[in-house]
């Protein structure tokens, strides 16, 4: 091996590590500016309008269709939940607080029965102004829902602006959701 090639070869580890370091730096910067979240389950709907659907009402509340969300008077929070979901009751206080604040919270009851739903709402309260029943789970597939609970923010032009898989927490509402609610108000 010629001396020059040997020198170049021994520089390879440094070059690789430098590239890796630059990549890590960029990722950290993106995390700092909220452009990258390693824990996020991104939704394919982000930045797009909702697919066509029409869900009947349940739990004594009216249902809704995608046409109700093409131009709502203010941003709507659509919350997927179910009575059999163990995590869903955890976010009941957060949803209730948002509803009190005047944010329209619409629920989609995923693969559930009306009796179980009634019991669930009696125990955990009803933050929802509408509840659609996705009995077959077909709408969930079209939305790309991972599991319940899952929450979507739809802006006044009907575009999905934010999405979270898992129970909402106070911190999450304060740091992520509130700024977006103000931005799209």
């Amino acid at each position: 091996m010629s001396p020059l090639r040997r020198r170049l070869l021994f520089g390879v580890p440094l070059a690789l590590v430098s590239a890796g370091g630059a990549a890590m730096y960029t990722l950290l910067e993106r995390m700092r500016t909220d452009q990258y979240d390693p824990r996020a389950f991104p939704s394919p709907l982000l930045g797009k309008p909702l697919p066509a659907f029409s869900l009947p009402g349940t739990g004594g509340l009216p249902g809704f269709a995608n046409t109700d969300l093409t131009a709502p008077p203010r941003p709507v929070l659509v919350n997927w939940f179910s009575s059999w979901c163990a995590v869903c009751p955890q976010e009941a206080p957060q949803l209730a607080a948002l509803a009190r604040q005047g944010v329209p919270v619409w629920g989609i009851d995923y693969e559930d029965t009306p009796t179980a739903l009634a019991e669930f709402l009696a125990t955990n309260g009803t933050p929802y102004s509408r509840i659609g029943a996705d009995k077959s789970g077909l709408t969930a597939i079209n939305w790309g829902v991972y599991g319940v609970p899952e929450t979507f923010l739809i802006d006044k032009t009907g575009i999905v602006r934010w999405h979270f898989a898992g129970a909402l927490t106070d911190e999450l509402v304060a740091e992520r959701l509130q700024p977006l609610l103000e931005q799209y108000a």
Binding site: F10, P13, L14, V17, G21, M24, Y25, L28, E29, R32
Partner: peptide, 28 residues
């Protein structure tokens, strides 16, 4: 926090980058 991440990244850069630079110069 990402700040802690940046600090550690800088430490890594100095330690790993420095040692591999030395390696590239001296090891041949």
């Amino acid at each position: 926090s990402p700040d802690q991440g940046l600090f550690i990244l800088a430490l890594l850069g100095i330690t790993i980058g420095g040692s591999l630079l030395l390696f590239a110069i001296r090891a041949p």
